[in-house]
Structures are given as C-alpha cells and as structure tokens.
C-alpha cells in the first residue's frame, strides 16, 4: 500500500537529490551534445570562495538570512497579535478572521504584481501618492523596489502581507486550546492583561509558536517567486539587493545554462536548511526540557 507513494518520492525527490550531487561535480549544460566533463569540487569552491561567484552567492544567502531574521519574529508577532484580536467571539469577528486570512489564497506571483504597482516609483504608485497626501507633500516619492535600501524591505512587507494569515490561523487554534480556567484563575489573582499574556497565553501556545517560527524560517529560505516576478517582468526590483539562493540557482540553470553550478547551489542550500532546522530544533527542545 505504501509503494505508490514511496515510488513517487523516490523518482521525484530522492533520485533528483542524488543527481544534484553528481551534477554539481560536473560541467553539465542542458542541450549540449557534448558529454559532461568532470570538474571535481570546483563548483563548490567557486560559489564559496571565488570572489565573484561567491559574492553573488553570499549576498543571496545573506538576503535569505536577513529575510528570515526579520520575517520570523515580525510575522510571528503580527500573526499572534491578529490571532489575539480575532480570538474573542464578538459580533462580526468572523469577517475579520476571513479578511486577514484572505491574502493567503493569493498566489505569490499575483501578490508581487499587485505590490509592484502599489510600490511603483515616482508619483505613480499608490503608496507614494498616499504618503505624499497624508504628509502634505512633505514625504518625497521613493523608489521602493529599485533602491538598495528599501528593495528587500519591500519584498519582506509584501511577503508578510501574503503569509501572515496562515500563521494567524494556526496560532488562533492554539489560543483556543488554552483552558479558559487558567485565565479565570489569573483574573482572580488580579493579574494584569500583560501578565496574563506572559504567564498564561505564551506558555500555553509555546509548542505552536515554536512550530510557526520554524515553519516560517524554512519558508524564508525558500523565497523565490516574488523575487523572480519582480526582477524579470520589468518590475524594476533591485536584483542585487534582493537575489536569494533559489533565485541564484534558477538563473544559473535557466538563464546561464549552468546546471552544474545550479546543482551545487541546490546542494549547499539543502545543507543550510538542514543545519538551521537542527539548530532551531535543538535550541527549542533544550529550552523546553
């Protein structure tokens, strides 16, 4: 009964993964009638130490890490606040629950296109218009996606907008599992709202919080769609300030037809995912015990 699934996983996960290791040791070019030539660990040496290739790769990795370092705490905190906001069953709260969840059903490619127009530079974009309107013209128009300073931040904002509702729902479910008696007991002890939050809510949903953080971190490492759409379809995104590891892998394979390097990037990417998952799991399990 397990065989169909195991066969599919072997064909589409395990085999390609092993192949990636082989490809990364060769100069493989798609459509090249000449056979791939062995080049040892040159690809790895290049992406890790060659100043030119590695600079792009390290930049990409750094962007992923910055992305994770911002998105994990911010999105988790925001999702938790939203969950707390919609937790209480007051009239109309269902509408808001759906509303915050709504962006989750938007494909990220579409999200990127909508935000590309909102963030358009000059006075054309909605955001620049709004800022100039509310500041009485004091706030000059920004090149949100093009500027080195704001490009990654812009991508982060649109990603959080899209992804936050998902985490909110998970946390909401966890919040509702916290026994009401605990809150009542805390109220009897005259605990303030903040104290209740710190001493009842947070411990009560801790495993879920950890899960959400871990999950968000893995997602942060995988970021690709929005960068590709914004950089490629004339979105004016500052590629140098936002390229991610997956973006590097895909452009190496697809635009430069360098399957070998792209595979090496994939392998390194995988190793990083594993290391970070292990570190985070270990850290959280230690704290718990």
């Amino acid at each position: 009964m397990a065989s169909p699934a195991l066969l599919l996983l072997a064909l589409f996960v395990a085999v390609p993964f092993v192949a990636a290791i082989w490809f990364s040791l060769h100069n493989v070019r798609l459509g090249d009638p000449r056979a791939p030539s062995f080049m040892g660990i040159t690809q790895y040496v290049r992406i890790l130490t060659d100043p030119d290739v590695s600079r792009q790769f390290i930049d990409a990795l750094l962007h992923n890490l910055i992305f994770a370092a911002v998105v994990v705490p911010v999105q988790t905190a925001l999702a938790l606040s939203l969950a707390l906001l919609v937790k209480k069953s007051i009239p109309g709260v269902g509408i808001f629950r759906s509303l915050y969840f709504l962006p989750v059903v938007f494909p990220i490619a579409l999200v990127a296109i909508i935000w590309r127009l909102i963030l358009a530079r000059g006075d054309q974009g909605l955001l620049n218009s709004a800022l100039s309107f509310f500041s009485g013209g004091a706030f000059g128009s920004q090149d949100w996606l093009g500027s080195e300073l704001t490009a990654l931040a812009s991508v982060i904002v649109l990603s959080i907008w899209q992804g936050c509702g998902f985490q909110m729902v998970i946390l909401l479910a966890a919040l509702q599992q916290v026994p009401a008696e605990l809150y009542e007991a805390a109220e009897l002890d005259r605990a303030s709202a903040w104290q209740r939050f710190v001493h009842v809510t947070v411990p009560g949903i801790k495993p879920t919080l950890v899960f959400v953080a871990l999950y968000t971190m893995i997602l942060s490492l995988r970021v690709f769609d929005q960068i590709y759409v914004l950089a490629k379809s004339g979105g004016g995104l500052n590629e140098g300030a936002t390229r991610t590891v997956m973006y590097e892998a895909v452009t190496a394979a697809f635009d430069e037809n360098n399957i070998g390097r792209a595979s090496a990037i994939s392998v390194v990417f995988f190793v990083i995912v594993v290391i970070l998952s292990v570190i985070q799991r270990r850290a959280t399990s230690e704290k718990e015990s």
């Binding site: 990636a20 490809f23 490492l221 892998a249 994939s266 995988f270 995912v273």
Partner: peptide, 13 residues
C-alpha cells in the same frame, strides 16, 4: 526536510 526547491534544478534537467 528536503524542500522541493532543493531538487527543482536537477529535476529540470
């Protein structure tokens, strides 16, 4: 823990 992204390139080939 193997995300699809890690095997996308070799699969492409």
């Amino acid at each position: 823990i193997v995300p699809f992204e890690a095997v996308a390139v070799p699969m492409f080939y």
